[in-house]
Write a protein that binds this DNA or RNA. Structure first.
Lengths: 250, 250
DNA sequence: AAAGCGGTTCCATAATACGGAACAATGTAA
DNA sequence: TTACATTGTTCCGTATTATGGAACCGCTTT
């Protein structure tokens, strides 16, 4: 909207695509502006460290300021806050309870919960902990561990059974996780509480790591096949949107 | 130099110092410009993802573009290339040979060497490997391992002796490393080759990790006490400058 | 209901960024 | 060696373009 700012930021994109650097002339041609203009823009960018001049042939590259800025951005990425509006929408669209959980050690912690008919934060289950093997969200996160960590986790744990459906066999869990990783979606078919079913999806961060997951939870009676059919795409999309907001670009 | 670009980049600095976000009015006051101007600048920044608007109260924060840009910058950080001019200067100032080494596994590899009287790259020693305990650069890097990694390294290795001065005793090495970490400088007093002495300093990257080190090397006859007195500050400064160029801000 | 306080939009003005030309520095070809 | 080509940098008059102010809109408070 502001010509000169637009052009300056355009230069940064240009340099992003040419990380080895570009000269003033090349840049001016790409932007279709006079050399002097490109030069002036580069001076401004250089002053702030967004661009760095190399060698006596004056090749310009992206500067170190980006590293500095990145740290601030990443430090202030707050999942709960970012996820909130998406979770509210998901809950409203599905009419079910939506959870956000986070990995802590080898357990998950519920860090947010949205009920379908209120935007007030309900602290009822927030802070509750659960194991990885018996919840949709837990399995969604576990499925994205390193292969070696998964086997280690399975070998070193006895899995407590909560319902007849809880997966307690290591081999069964392993193949379930494999499926989950491919699908990008995991289920909880009364594995933790009888009568309660849920669908979950992982949240990926800027390093492509999975530390969070979200789920849509409902009583078995309401979670019909048709209902799930409509929930899953919405869940997928929501998880993707949140991931993107956390800097996940892949 | 370009007013509008300057102002735009100034806003980014402002938001960097207020990571929780600022409103248009606040920003316009800080920059001492009209609200409309600040608003227009923000629109341009937002278009490119450098700024993100949150909530209906229109709080602006740093955007995710920085994460994207950071990746490109970090990926293209090339130590050898960046260090070159600094190494040349250091060699010219000291009149001695300067080395750049890199950690690879539990060994170091010489990845650059600058002779005092030529700017031509000499491949004679580049690629040579050495152990960590017997060189100045090796100890400089080793000293910055995690405490647990250091003890593990010392416990699991028998240290080969190259000269009478080589440190082969675990305890002796441990206390030497402690000293090095405090000083920020390490020495090689004929520990690897008789008659050769050197001073080394670690290079730190954008994550405060030490993967590289540089050294000034010379024959014992030339490396007098007085000579070292002048070399060390230059070495320190060079190491700092290179670290900064690699995104080390601390 | 009205006032206050944010963000956003619009517009006339003149300040400001622009392009072009001249210059400097470097490398290349004759 | 000279002349030429190419690239980065500086300067300046012009008119394009960013600017500030006023008006507007939506929200909250009293």
């Amino acid at each position: 909207m502001i010509q000169s700012v637009d052009r300056a930021l355009h230069i940064l994109d240009l340099l992003k695509n040419n990380p080895r650097g570009l000269g003033v002339t090349e840049i001016s041609k790409s932007l279709d502006v006079a050399k002097s203009t490109a030069h002036r823009l580069l001076m401004s960018l250089e002053r702030y460290g967004y661009v760095q001049k190399f060698g006596k042939d004056a090749i310009y590259r992206l500067g170190l300021k980006f590293i500095e800025m990145n740290q601030v951005v990443v430090e202030n990425l707050n999942v709960v806050e970012i996820a909130r509006p998406y979770l509210e929408k998901l809950s409203a669209d599905t009419g079910e309870i939506v959870h956000l959980v986070m990995l802590d050690g080898y357990e998950i912690v519920y860090i947010d919960k949205v009920d379908n008919n209120s935007t007030i934060r309900i602290y009822s289950q927030i802070g509750r902990r659960a194991q990885l093997h018996c919840t949709g969200v837990g399995k969604a996160i576990l499925a994205h561990f390193d292969k070696s960590n998964i086997t280690r986790f399975i070998e070193n744990n006895d899995f407590r059974s909560y319902t007849p459906n809880t997966i307690v066999d290591g081999q069964a869990l392993l193949s379930e996780l494999e499926k989950i990783r491919i699908d990008g979606i995991s289920f909880d078919n009364e594995e933790h509480e009888p009568g309660i079913q849920c669908v979950a999806a992982p949240i990926k961060d800027h390093r492509n790591h999975v530390q969070y997951a979200i789920s849509v939870t409902g009583p078995l009676t309401r979670m019909t096949k048709e209902k799930l059919e409509t929930c899953i795409p919405k869940l997928r999309e929501t998880a993707q949107n949140i991931s993107r907001q956390l800097g996940h670009f892949l």
